[in-house]
């Protein structure tokens, strides 16, 4: 479904990604773990078309999207809940969700998806008239994910959904990710909380200073001594 083929990305003089290859098959939950600055966010941003790559190729369902502008990539069926959530703080919850469906014209389908998002995150329904900036961190994360779902993506990119959330909420978010996946959405999940991420993912990649160090079944990565030492706290 998604194939990233030896991607090279520079941020100014910084070589952020060095020949990264990765794939996600339809229906999978794939996770990308690694330390701060390893290039996880950069990879998601280049899949979404936000940062240009110098070399390499990104393809989605067989179509080359390497040089495609970000708004067209959303139109193809890839949406992202970005790092830092980036909810429109000055707009209401409903308006945020509406913007998520910006490319769509099918009113009936959009209405269904509002309901689906509210079922996934009942808290958003309670707060639908509230300005997004006044929501708690956890609620903003739910909104960012709900908003990303409103474009009815086939591939969902999630950047650090658990960042800064209380442990109980983290569990809830990860349960929801599985639920979203069960409804047929392929998920590429970037996480620092490697243990949680690997326990819900099918496969995982370990990114280190811009290169893929390891790639395996998530269950095997959980047992891997190096991974344990570096990312799972011993």
């Amino acid at each position: 479904m998604l194939t990233v083929d030896s991607l090279d990305v520079y941020y100014g003089a910084v070589h952020a990604l060095k020949g990264v290859s990765l794939r996600a098959e339809a229906g999978e939950v794939v996770t990308l773990i690694g330390a701060n600055g390893a290039g996880k966010t950069t990879l998601l941003r280049s899949i979404s078309g936000l940062v240009p790559s110098r070399l390499g190729k990104v393809a989605f369902e067989g179509k080359d999207i390497t040089r495609m502008p970000p708004h067209d990539i959303v139109g193809l069926g890839i949406s992202q809940s970005p790092e830092g959530r980036m909810v429109f703080a000055n707009l209401s919850v409903v308006d945020n969700l509406e913007l998520g469906a910006y490319r769509r014209k099918d009113r009936a389908g959009i209405r269904e998806d509002y309901d689906a998002v509210y079922r996934l995150f009942p808290r958003l329904l309670e707060r639908r008239r509230q300005t997004a900036g006044t929501l708690s961190g956890g609620e903003q994360q739910m909104l960012a994910m709900g908003r990303a779902l409103m474009s009815r993506p086939r591939l969902l990119l999630l950047d650090e959904p658990s960042l800064g959330l209380a442990p109980l909420l983290v569990r809830e978010i990860f349960r929801t990710i599985l639920e979203i996946n069960r409804r047929g959405v392929t998920v590429l999940l970037v996480e620092q909380n490697a243990h949680m991420a690997l326990s819900i993912a099918g496969r995982g990649y370990v990114l280190e200073t811009g290169t893929v160090k390891l790639e395996d079944q998530a269950s095997r990565l959980l047992q891997n001594e190096d991974v344990k030492k570096a990312y799972l706290g011993g």
């Binding site: 979404s48 970000p70 708004h71 980036m86 000055n90 707009l91 509406e98 913007l99 910006y102």
Partner: peptide, 24 residues
């Protein structure tokens, strides 16, 4: 209007707006 809402989104953040599928 749709364009007006997109304007408000773009004024908040170009990145976030682009991720909504808005042509900034």
């Amino acid at each position: 209007t749709r364009a007006g809402k997109a304007m408000r989104a773009v004024s908040y953040s170009h990145t976030a707006a682009a991720l909504m599928g808005i042509s900034v």
